[in-house]
């Protein structure tokens, strides 16, 4: 059992624990912070599995941009406390049942693959090689992703705009 193996299990434990904490927090700011921790762990995992460029992106985009976006929103809206239970039983039990079912099914399916049980050798894809590969073989997909992001930008702007003026009147008149 090499040092890398030990490192993997430690990181895996960290990710799972942080995610589990994030999922069960009542306070959403806490949840987001735990999730940031989980994403840092994921970034380390990526580094360990030979994808340093992705590790950097994970921190920048996920832990940096996306989570901060969540924080913005949570700060922006002022939530009242919901009445009733934190986890309604009628929803909790089926959710647990389904998740456990998924876990069982995926474990059985994954475990049934015999060639997946041999340990993998460590390897590394340098960012430069990865970049060349990405833009040589997947340039079209990259372009499409950039279009997608543009659409998201416009869409978020349209949705977030406050509606004023005549449209408010039409809304009143609407049945």
């Amino acid at each position: 059992m090499s040092i890398l193996t030990l490192l993997f299990y430690a990181i895996a434990l960290l990710i799972v624990a942080a995610t589990a904490m994030a999922v069960t927090r009542r306070n959403m700011v806490h949840a987001v912070l735990y999730l940031v921790l989980s994403f840092f762990g994921t970034a380390m995992l990526f580094y360990l599995l030979g994808a340093p460029f992705l590790a950097a992106l994970e921190i920048i985009i996920y832990a940096g941009a996306i989570m901060v976006l969540f924080l913005f929103l949570i700060m922006m809206i002022r939530l009242k406390k919901l009445p009733g239970m934190f986890f309604p039983v009628g929803q909790l039990l089926p959710a647990i049942f389904i998740c456990a079912g998924f876990l069982a099914v995926s474990s059985v399916l994954v475990g049934g693959n015999p060639e997946g049980w041999t340990p993998m050798p460590a390897a590394q894809a340098s960012p430069a090689a990865f970049g060349v590969y990405l833009f040589q073989t997947h340039w079209l997909a990259v372009e499409i992703a950039s279009m997608l992001l543009l659409v998201a930008l416009v869409g978020a702007y349209v949705l977030g705009r406050r509606v004023r003026g005549p449209s408010a009147d039409t809304r009143k008149e609407a049945p």
Partner: peptide
Amino acid sequence: MIVPLNHILLLSGLLFSLGMFCTLAR
């Protein structure tokens, strides 16, 4: 040598079901 692929996949599955739980139950 690091871990086998299956361990990574199991970790992924665990994370996925945690996320699913969060989506379904919160």
